[in-house]
Simulated assay, not measured.
Amino acid sequence: MARRPGGTAPATSTPVSSPGDDACESAGPESRLSLLLARHGGVTEAWIREALTASGVTPRHAIVLMHLDGGQLGQRDLGARLSVDPSVLVALLNALEDRDLVRRRRDPADRRRHIVEITEAGAAAVTKLDAAIGRVEDELFADLNPQERDTLHSLLARVRTAHGGACDAAPSTDC
């Protein structure tokens, strides 16, 4: 991957072949789509971490805040959306609550249920986080036109990333 202007590529990144480089398309790990996706994912994660460093939040914190930016959620519902263990969610929320970015409170209708909501400071942070992530995306996908970006988004949204799950059918059938 090309070095970013004003920054450096992570030390673990390796150059990505150019569109006309047929050597990598037919042999080696680059011929395996999953390995290519993993490498790009690692580079992307490193760049996002770097972009979020100034805000003091991790990518996981940013994802929590972005989910809550759409409105309050029950703590269990939030955990399900994030696909994280409840103990992991509590640790994430504790860190965000310590920084006054989220607030938890008991549901008045069901005292066993906790409601999680973003604070004003959290909403302001989301605006900054979204802009930082947008800059990373603009750089990562600079060689793709808007239609290609939409196609990539659509295809990646269909990639199965959970083992097992509700669908035990063959991969070629719909779940």
Rank of each mutant, 00 (worst) to 15 (best):
A2T: 06
A2E: 09
A2M: 05
R3A: 09
R4C: 04
G7Y: 08
T8V: 07
T8W: 05
A9V: 03
S13C: 12
T14D: 13
T14C: 04
T14P: 00
V16W: 11
V16H: 10
S17N: 04
S18I: 03
P19L: 07
G20A: 11
D21W: 07
D22C: 02
A23M: 09
C24S: 15
S26I: 11
R32D: 13
R32Y: 14
R32C: 11
S34H: 12
S34F: 10
S34A: 14
L35G: 03
L37Q: 13
R39M: 14
G42P: 03
G42C: 07
T44L: 14
T44K: 03
E45I: 01
E45F: 03
A46G: 07
W47I: 03
A51L: 06
L52S: 06
A54E: 15
P59S: 04
P59K: 04
R60Y: 01
H61W: 05
I63Q: 14
I63N: 07
V64F: 04
M66S: 09
M66L: 08
H67G: 00
D69Y: 10
G71F: 08
Q75S: 12
Q75R: 08
D77M: 06
D77V: 12
L78N: 02
V84G: 04
D85K: 11
D85S: 08
D85G: 01
D85Y: 09
S87N: 10
S87G: 05
S87I: 12
S87M: 14
V88W: 02
A91C: 06
L93P: 05
L93F: 06
E97A: 15
D98V: 04
R99T: 11
D100W: 06
D100R: 14
L101K: 09
R104K: 10
R104P: 00
R105C: 01
D107A: 04
D107C: 03
P108T: 10
A109L: 15
E117T: 13
I118R: 00
I118Q: 02
T119N: 04
T119Q: 08
E120F: 10
A124E: 14
A124I: 01
A124S: 15
A125L: 15
V126W: 06
V126F: 09
T127H: 13
L129R: 06
L129H: 12
D130Q: 11
D130G: 06
A132P: 03
A132K: 05
I133F: 08
V136Q: 00
E137Y: 09
E137W: 02
E139I: 00
E139K: 02
L140Q: 10
L140K: 08
L140F: 09
F141Q: 01
D143N: 06
L144H: 09
L144Q: 12
N145S: 03
P146N: 05
R149A: 04
R149T: 02
R149I: 12
D150I: 01
L152F: 11
L152M: 14
H153R: 15
L155F: 11
A157M: 07
R158T: 10
V159L: 14
G165K: 06
A166V: 03
A166K: 09
A169V: 05
A169K: 14
A169P: 00
A170Q: 07
A170K: 03
P171H: 05
S172R: 13
S172L: 09
T173L: 11
D174I: 11
